[in-house]
Design a protein around this nucleic acid. Structure first.
Length: 900
RNA sequence: GGGCGGGUAGCUCAGUUGGUUAGAGCAACUGGUUUACACCCAGUAGGUCGCAGGUUCGAGUCCUGUCUCGCCCACCA
């Protein structure tokens, strides 16, 4: 038995605890079952739960629960990510509030604080996810800095180093002057900036008083200029080649050179060459053997080489100062507004500085194979179009700067011989455990990019590379994982890198990648990219905008089930999602409605055995079966087929919509209502069958309420999550005595009765008659239709609240409704408004006339008759006939009206 | 500059390989407590499918162009 009212809060907490107690989510190695594995995209330990997590994890939970229903052995591995820069920044901010910096307290103390922080706060997000009902195997939980995981990360580094993919080099990198670390290209966000283009006068040494105009957006780097470059073929500057000009700040002679990299049509066609602070300039410098003058340090401040007036200034203050200086000296031709693209540091949100520095780089392994596995659908992207994005990235890929000048993270497993030249690899020791004589070595100070450790998530969560751990976790059984559910925003950061890691790190390096071998190595078979959740104004939901509702508040208000199904119903596959709380409210309404439909069943007595499908079918007495019963069962079978199809295509919103429509419109609004006119054991058994299957179908989406109802109605003693879902074929077998072969015809029959009832109700409503008022109805129909109507007479009368629904030979009443089965008449003398009714009829007749005209033309068109398939022509023909009859009927009434 | 996605009812979106009279939810309006549910029931109204061409017997659906919004990629200082 179930309670009168649905209150999600209590029952959700109750069932989640029971599920955990009974180890329902434990991944088991069962050789007789097909494995189904998902690894969670590990949330940042610094993150707070947002709507994106809710969507993402609901989808994963639906997939995992469905897998269990299909008798697969499911394993969903949860975990968290140590969030390198993000946590480092958090701790630094905490220190700043205490008036300290990380350098004040030193590396060891800093790491202690970071660990404290993560221990206190890092688990919160997973605890919050539990409220959503996620069926993760919590015994398999993993954190990217667990000792075994860290070893896996370092092993990966060592292996890639040994394979020759990792190297150390001095290159231009994206430098974040706030975090004081190098970043990968992916961590740089290009933004359009309104800025100024300054045209600066460079006096020509050999021609005193003559100036060259050079356009720049960065006057603060003038002190680092080592040349002025023009395009060799630029006629304007032909005669200046070989001459020199005066650097306007830090006055010195610099050469005028020709270089193809210069664009003639930008600015004045003359480029100031500042090799230390621009990649193109650096390359020009290399080509011409120019020196490099660094005037901006790694903290974003100008140094002594910039001159005493600029030393110590921040780069943006320096820009202002340089402009003022030039203006005072009359060395500015002009300043114009200019929109340029500036790279920003993703985390610190400041412009990055291109800086030449010594870093560790990774040349991506298995690039070609990584393209192939997606192109050839070894890994299936959904929606498929993301494959293009993926390919484009791989085709234009550059080596990955993996070292970070941070403390929080996996420290690079490289040691340098003390006092020896670090650049010489002879003085390196690269291993997971370090050198045997540590006193002679010093370890690299830097840590690895967080994404470097994320790249092996599907491997290391399953114990890789430790043989024993792999066996314990069932690596051979559970790998590769089945579905990865994530956002397209991390397709480069994470998805692509996982694919390359799997292909490169598993198996023997020299084994050919046959299709079989590829299938063993890929980390997942499907990648489902969710949409990004946006607010009502189309803005991305974010903390800073404060436009994201707190998921926990929503769960409090609507229940986890309501939030889950509401969110899925608004999540079209692959499209961004406009969040609306309204939809979540509808999710709860659905749960409430489900609850109440069970109460209807409950009110009619709960005797008998409902513990299995067999028992329920046994309670059906064939002689009491009516058209409606067979029709609704037939519809259930159709629903299951369509539902399975939608789920197979990962179209969750369509699947939810199908369930919703069947449950609400077909089951509640129709079948429950007509059942009220004839409650008997057979009808109740049909209700039980429908309710039971609905619970199973709904369960992955709304696990809590379905669990409660399952037990409340005694459909089984096991948890609903342990039950297998019957296919439509299996159900057809169970229901073999129910004449399901007749279902298609009966579904159509019931549809025609529904149409008739709707028309009759509309007639009542049009005359302002209460839907409960007992009005006399008359109908006119041919013999076949009459037989159908009479078969459903009891239901019709019940649904129309009328005692009188009878045949008539002639048109004797004044209002009419025409449906496929025939014509309906109603006596409405008292409420009759001739004008209104005439107008209604005229509109309807006009509409039909237009339709008839178009279709007659169509059916007289030779080309149509020749080309169109038979069923289309037949359909058009019968529809035309139907409408001609309708029109005639209406015209007859119309004529009658006009004689009054 | 290149690529991708969207523009269908007031709002949010469905609309399978072209094929019967373009659908749903919300909002609006009208009427309703009959054996679950007012978090409900019954009904009404509302759309030249961004625009212009083209292909076709037939186009929301395919092609071309165009406008518009959003996202991703890209070292014009």
């Amino acid at each position: 038995m179930i309670e009168v009212s649905y209150s999600p809060g209590d029952l959700e907490e109750k069932w989640y605890a029971k599920w955990l107690e009974n180890n329902l989510f434990k991944g088991k190695i069962s050789p007789d079952k097909i494995p189904y594995t998902i690894v969670i995209p590990p949330p940042n330990v610094t993150g707070i739960l947002h709507m994106g997590h809710i969507l993402n994890n609901t989808i994963q939970d639906v997939l995992v629960r469905r897998a269990r229903q299909k008798n697969k052995s499911a394993l969903w591995i949860p975990g968290t990510d140590h969030a390198g820069i993000s946590l480092q920044i958090k701790v630094e901010k905490e220190l700043a509030r205490e008036g300290k910096t990380c350098r004040d307290i030193g590396r060891e103390a800093f790491l202690e604080r970071a660990k404290d922080w993560r221990e206190k706060q890092g688990g919160i997000i997973l605890e919050q996810l539990k409220k959503l009902g996620v069926s993760c195997d919590w015994s398999a939980i993993k954190y990217t800095q667990d000792p075994d995981y860290s070893r896996a990360v370092l092993s990966t580094f060592v292996k890639l180093y040994e394979q020759g993919y990792i190297y150390r080099g001095s290159r231009f990198v994206n430098w974040c002057p706030v975090s004081m670390t190098a970043l990968s290209d992916e961590e740089v966000i290009m933004r359009q900036q309104d800025s100024f283009l300054y045209y600066v006068k460079y006096e020509i040494v050999e021609r005193s008083g003559e100036f060259l105009s050079v356009a720049t957006t960065r006057p603060e780097t003038i002190m680092g200029d080592v040349a002025i470059a023009v395009h060799p073929s630029d006629g304007r500057y032909k005669d200046l080649k070989g001459l020199h000009c005066w650097r306007p700040i830090g006055r010195e002679q610099i050469p005028i050179i020709g270089d193809e990299a210069v664009l003639k049509d930008f600015g004045t066609g003359a480029l100031k060459v500042t090799p230390a602070h621009d990649v193109v300039d650096f390359e020009i410098g290399q080509r011409h053997g120019l020196k490099t003058i660094t005037v901006i340090d790694q903290n974003g401040k100008l140094n002594a080489l910039a001159g005493p007036e600029f030393e110590g200034l921040d780069r943006f203050e320096a820009r202002q100062k340089a402009v003022e200086y030039l203006r005072e000296k009359g060395l500015l031709f002009k300043e114009e507004t200019h929109i340029n693209n500036v790279g920003f540091s993703e985390r610190a949100d400041v412009p990055i500085e291109p800086v030449l520095s010594e870093q560790w780089f990774l040349k991506y392994p298995r690039l070609e194979e990584a393209k192939l596995v997606v192109q050839e659908n070894f890994i299936h992207f959904r929606p498929e179009r993301w494959a293009k994005t993926y390919m484009h990235w791989l085709e234009n890929i550059k080596d990955w700067c993996i070292s970070r000048q941070l403390w929080w993270g996996h420290r690079i497993p490289v040691w340098y011989r003390k006092g020896a030249e670090r650049r010489d690899s002879k003085n390196w020791h690269v291993s997971v455990d370090g050198p045997g004589d540590p006193e002679n070595w010093e370890r690299d100070e830097d840590v690895l990019d967080t994404w470097f450790s994320s790249a092996i998530w599907p491997l290391a969560t399953l114990g890789w590379p430790d043989g024993k751990a792999m066996e314990k976790m069932g690596f051979d059984y559970f790998y590769p994982t089945a579905d990865l559910v994530t956002g397209p925003d991390i397709i480069f950061f994470w998805v692509a890198r996982m694919i390359m890691s799997g292909l490169n790190l598993l198996g023997d390096e020299n084994t050919a990648l046959t299709p079989g071998e590829i299938r063993k190595r890929i980390p997942f078979q499907n990648v489902y990219f969710t949409g990004i959740i946006r607010d009502n104004f189309g803005r991305k939901m974010s903390k800073s905008l404060g436009n994201s509702p707190d998921p926990l508040d929503l769960i409090e208000k609507y229940g986890a089930d309501g939030v889950r199904i509401g969110l899925l119903s608004m999540a079209p596959s692959g499209q961004d999602i406009l969040f609306s709380e309204d939809r979540v409210a509808q999710g709860k309404k659905l749960c409430t409605k489900l609850w109440n439909s069970f109460r209807f069943r409950q009110q009619n007595g709960m005797e008998g055995d409902r513990g299995s499908i067999e028992a329920i079918v046994r309670a059906m007495d064939v002689q009491f079966l009516e058209a409606d019963d067979i029709a609704i069962l037939g519809k259930l079978l159709n629903l299951i087929d369509e539902f399975e199809h939608a789920m197979g295509d990962y179209e969750f919103n369509r699947a939810v919509h199908l369930l919703h429509a069947f449950f609400w419109n077909d089951y509640c609004d129709w079948y429950i209502e007509i059942s009220k006119a004839r409650v008997n054991g057979t009808v109740l058994a049909i209700h039980d069958l429908l309710l039971r299957q609905l619970l199973l179908l709904f369960h992955p989406f709304i696990p809590f309420v379905t669990e409660e109802l399952w037990h409340g109605h005694g459909y089984g003693t096991k948890f609903i999550g342990e039950e297998l879902l019957e296919s439509s074929d299996q159900l057809r077998t169970y229901l073999s005595k129910v004449y399901l072969g007749k279902a298609p015809a009966l579904i159509e029959e019931v549809e025609s009765i529904r149409e008739l009832v709707v028309a009759a109700r509309t007639m009542k409503a049009q005359f302002g008659l209460s839907s409960t008022r007992d009005v006399k109805f008359y109908f006119k129909a041919d013999a076949t239709a009459k037989a159908i109507i009479e078969r459903h007479l009891r239901d019709i009368k019940y649904l129309l609240s009328t005692k009188f629904f009878d045949e008539t030979e002639e048109i004797l009443k004044l209002s009419t409704g025409v449906v496929a089965l025939g014509s309906l008449y109603i006596d409405v003398a008292k409420n009759f408004n001739i004008a209104a009714e005439t107008k209604r009829l005229k509109n309807e007749i006009d509409r039909l006339s237009r339709f008839i005209e178009i279709n007659e033309k169509k059916l007289h068109n030779e080309d149509f008759l020749v080309h169109a398939p038979a069923e289309i022509i037949e359909g058009a023909r019968s529809l035309l006939e139907e409408n001609i009859v309708k029109k005639k009927e209406l015209q007859a009434v119309f004529l009658r009206l006009s004689t009054l």
